[in-house]
Design a binder for these strands. Structure first.
Lengths: 141, 141
DNA sequence: GTAACACCTCTAGTAACTAGAGGTTCAAGG
DNA sequence: CCTTGAACCTCTAGTTACTAGAGGTGTTAC
């Protein structure tokens, strides 16, 4: 049995975050000591690792929750797991594309500044006026 | 003079967002009609466009605010503008790198699922166990 | 004059935590 | 057995950048 601090160390999750997951229903309410402190077993440890890994892969908690509910599922229900992963991948690729556009604009903007600031700053000008940009761009998340 | 709705249309900013910027001090408090409705001039329009463009380039409002305060500045103060743009660029590149790693993992994970779900789902397994991953990965923002 | 629409303020909700206050329990050393 | 300090407890509020809604008022076109 692990204390919350031990679970924290083993998963790299901050203690308040563990309690937060419990409040959200992602982690089941653990046993308590007589003094009301939480005690976790290996099932909880595994579940927390699953949550963290999902988060590290960029999934929102709602998707992590959906995946958790699929544990032990069979047959066509499992397509939902596949869908979640695939949707996340599509999302990710779109974001990468957007960020690349942003990168191009910012590279151009920063390069426009030669360090001399005798008159109008090229950087400020570029920020103030989208028409100076190469094309459309939008910061997604 | 523009109403808030007109300003909204001209900048693609939602009306509540304009009021939100005003509350935050990014937009100055505009004149009001006798009936207490906001009326904006071209200076406000320009300023709002600046804010939106900064946001579209991925800057947090705090950076946008810093840039706004540099308008009309001279000499070395303007290096701050350059710094902000450059910091954003570094940030952006780091994020792109991270997202690429994620993409690689997710591509592998989704490919592992052949559509048959006779026993353990490969996707769920991959999510539950980071050691099945190619390398470290973390979803940044 | 009246209907429809735009506007007003204020509160609360979103995601995923994080920080802090103020108080209790646990484990180790004396 | 007692004390001390770390770890734990609950609860509230803050973070970012908005967005949604309630309940009420102003403006405008016919």
């Amino acid at each position: 049995m692990y204390s919350i601090g031990e679970l924290s160390r083993r998963t790299g999750t901050k203690v308040p975050t563990i309690r937060f997951y419990e409040d959200k229903g992602l982690l089941p309410k653990p046993q308590r000591t007589e003094g009301n402190q939480r005690r976790y077993d290996d099932v909880a440890l595994k579940r927390l690792r699953f949550i963290r890994h999902g988060r590290d892969l960029g999934l929102p908690l709602s998707d992590v929750e959906a995946l958790l509910s699929l544990e032990g599922a069979q047959g066509p229900d499992l397509n939902r797991a596949h869908d979640i992963a695939e949707r996340q991948l599509v999302d990710l690729r779109e974001r990468i594309t957007q960020l690349r556009k942003l990168e191009a604009e910012l590279t151009r903007i920063t390069a426009a500044c030669d360090g001399k600031h005798d008159h109008v700053c090229a950087v400020l000008h570029a920020f103030s006026d989208h028409s100076a940009c190469l094309g459309p761009h939008n910061a997604i998340k």
